[in-house]
Simulated assay, not measured.
Amino acid sequence: MVLKLSGEALAAGRGFGVDVTKIHEIAGEIAEVHKLGVEIAIVVGGGNFFRGVAEQAKHMDRVSADNMGMLATVINALAIQDALEKRGVFCRVMSAIEMNQVCEPYIRRRAVRHLEKGRIVIFAAGTGNPYFSTDTAASLRAMEIKADVLLKATKVDGIYDSDPVINKEAVKFDEITYMEILRLGLKVMDATAVSLCKDNNLPMIIFDMNQPGNIQRVICEEKIGSLVTA
């Protein structure tokens, strides 16, 4: 499976930086799922440090801003790796941008081999290209390693027809197709990521990260969150 974590999830509501307590909580949940024998790859965002489309980047060249965002994901990936290794879980960070002193370069066959050996692989630096989000990177890496499912951990408990924080009458979808997401213009993932999953029949589950134990519940096929299929 591929687990997509947002940078904001690691900031635990502080908005900026890394909340060490939260990272260790998340690492603990991932380690418990790993004990079940599940092959786990993680794609992490960088929004808790910098994102190319954010307010602080509006006067910057988009390519430079996106490159900064990709470097932010590497910081998060190293923090997750550290927390997992403190729990005795073997872990590798693989970056789409080469930085050999810090982590391995992303090579698909090597990533698959790490997973086969029972290591957790964290994919950093997005796709290595500007104009592509880490959601697209998650879809792409899931396809490349032939993952069975893409799990997207968010701050809401599924997909709604409008923002449930703003609209208390928002209706939740237990199941929805990628085509409906595109047709309704729902802001679940960007359109590139959604199209990639749709074209390759990759199921995705959107669930609430703030509920302890939810990663394991999803893996054990409990009905939580929203299931997206082609």
Score class of each variant (00 low, 15 high):
residue 2 V to R: 09
residue 2 V to K: 13
residue 7 G to V: 06
residue 8 E to N: 11
residue 10 L to E: 01
residue 12 A to R: 10
residue 16 F to H: 14
residue 17 G to P: 07
residue 20 V to Q: 12
residue 20 V to F: 15
residue 22 K to T: 08
residue 22 K to G: 05
residue 23 I to D: 05
residue 28 G to C: 02
residue 29 E to I: 08
residue 29 E to Y: 13
residue 31 A to N: 09
residue 32 E to K: 15
residue 32 E to D: 12
residue 32 E to M: 11
residue 35 K to I: 05
residue 35 K to A: 12
residue 37 G to W: 09
residue 40 I to S: 01
residue 44 V to C: 00
residue 44 V to A: 01
residue 46 G to K: 00
residue 46 G to H: 00
residue 47 G to M: 05
residue 47 G to Q: 08
residue 48 N to D: 08
residue 48 N to K: 13
residue 50 F to P: 00
residue 52 G to R: 05
residue 56 Q to K: 14
residue 56 Q to T: 05
residue 58 K to T: 10
residue 59 H to F: 14
residue 59 H to V: 09
residue 63 V to D: 12
residue 68 M to F: 06
residue 77 A to M: 08
residue 77 A to H: 07
residue 77 A to V: 04
residue 79 A to P: 02
residue 81 Q to P: 08
residue 81 Q to R: 15
residue 82 D to F: 09
residue 83 A to C: 06
residue 85 E to Q: 10
residue 86 K to S: 05
residue 86 K to W: 05
residue 87 R to L: 15
residue 88 G to V: 00
residue 90 F to N: 15
residue 90 F to W: 15
residue 92 R to V: 06
residue 92 R to G: 01
residue 93 V to H: 12
residue 93 V to Y: 14
residue 93 V to D: 09
residue 95 S to G: 13
residue 96 A to Y: 09
residue 100 N to P: 04
residue 102 V to R: 09
residue 102 V to K: 10
residue 102 V to I: 12
residue 107 I to N: 10
residue 109 R to P: 06
residue 110 R to G: 04
residue 113 R to S: 14
residue 114 H to P: 08
residue 118 G to V: 02
residue 119 R to E: 14
residue 127 T to E: 02
residue 128 G to Q: 08
residue 129 N to G: 03
residue 132 F to K: 08
residue 132 F to W: 11
residue 133 S to K: 02
residue 135 D to C: 04
residue 136 T to A: 12
residue 137 A to F: 05
residue 138 A to F: 04
residue 138 A to T: 03
residue 140 L to Y: 11
residue 142 A to R: 01
residue 142 A to E: 04
residue 146 K to W: 07
residue 146 K to P: 02
residue 149 V to H: 14
residue 149 V to A: 03
residue 154 T to P: 01
residue 155 K to F: 02
residue 156 V to P: 00
residue 156 V to W: 05
residue 157 D to N: 14
residue 158 G to P: 08
residue 159 I to N: 12
residue 161 D to P: 12
residue 162 S to I: 09
residue 163 D to N: 13
residue 165 V to K: 11
residue 166 I to R: 15
residue 166 I to E: 13
residue 167 N to R: 13
residue 168 K to C: 06
residue 169 E to H: 15
residue 171 V to F: 15
residue 173 F to M: 02
residue 177 T to M: 01
residue 178 Y to P: 03
residue 178 Y to H: 11
residue 179 M to A: 12
residue 180 E to T: 11
residue 182 L to K: 03
residue 182 L to W: 00
residue 184 L to Q: 14
residue 185 G to V: 08
residue 185 G to M: 08
residue 186 L to K: 01
residue 189 M to D: 00
residue 189 M to K: 02
residue 191 A to R: 10
residue 193 A to Q: 06
residue 193 A to P: 02
residue 194 V to D: 06
residue 196 L to R: 13
residue 198 K to G: 07
residue 199 D to I: 10
residue 199 D to R: 15
residue 201 N to R: 14
residue 201 N to V: 04
residue 208 D to N: 09
residue 209 M to S: 07
residue 210 N to I: 04
residue 211 Q to P: 03
residue 211 Q to K: 15
residue 214 N to F: 10
residue 214 N to Y: 11
residue 216 Q to K: 15
residue 218 V to C: 03
residue 218 V to R: 02
residue 220 C to I: 05
residue 221 E to W: 10
residue 224 I to N: 04
residue 226 S to E: 00
residue 227 L to A: 06
residue 228 V to E: 03
residue 228 V to P: 00
